[in-house]
Design a protein around this nucleic acid. Structure first.
Lengths: 99, 99
DNA sequence: CCTTCGTTTCGTAATTTTACGAAATACGAA
DNA sequence: TTCGTATTTCGTAAAATTACGAAACGAAGG
């Protein structure tokens, strides 16, 4: 009868997803930058961060998948910015969680 | 000369560690319970949560390693509680991070 | 001492994450 | 069109995570 019944709440799953996106220092670092200054390019990050560009690209992809970050194509560069809506959602989820 | 220089800040690494601890729904769920009611036993959780006891034990271990949760031995049971100090630290880190 | 209870550790397997360099892609400029 | 720049995708490998059941453990009770 497939009566598995969704065990975790939507909020718990969302929080876990956002937490997962922030579970690596380089991704926290990227978000730190994006939350302080408006946006930045993958290449700008690559010059700063001590990892290969392809690896950086993977981390950016994960941040995009989580919803926290979005990329705007601005050829030949790609500008990354916070997704403000989801950022606010994550902020609220963590705030509620910790109180 | 090993001049690798620690790239990420202490805060970034700490936040990533706490985020990692919260990157699985069952661990978020456990913290939710512990933050609402004082403490609880592994067995109490095991009855609720749809995973094997050994797996639950692993998740509790991870939460302990992250510092968010502590276990008090109270034979033959083990009482798990939030570690209030680290919980407050995590709360502050996320608060700063999101603002 | 032997058993039971609550819990963790061990052994193992499947999956995911993290990382890199090479190759591919997309666009603008020469 | 060919070249150079910016970036991602592919192929791959190593390590970590997640999960389970079986076995081990420590304390209390018979």
């Amino acid at each position: 009868m497939e009566e598995v019944k969704e065990f975790y709440s939507v909020e718990e799953k969302k929080l876990a997803r956002y937490a997962k996106a922030l579970s690596h220092p380089v991704r926290v670092y990227i978000c730190d930058i994006l939350s302080k200054q408006a946006c930045c390019y993958s290449g700008d990050l690559a010059e700063e961060v001590p990892i290969a560009r392809s690896t950086l690209s993977q981390h950016l992809k994960e941040l995009k998948n989580s919803g926290l970050v979005q990329g705007e194509i601005n050829p030949p560069k790609i500008k990354y910015c916070l997704n403000k809506e989801n950022w606010a959602e994550a902020q609220e989820l963590f705030k509620e969680f910790f109180k």
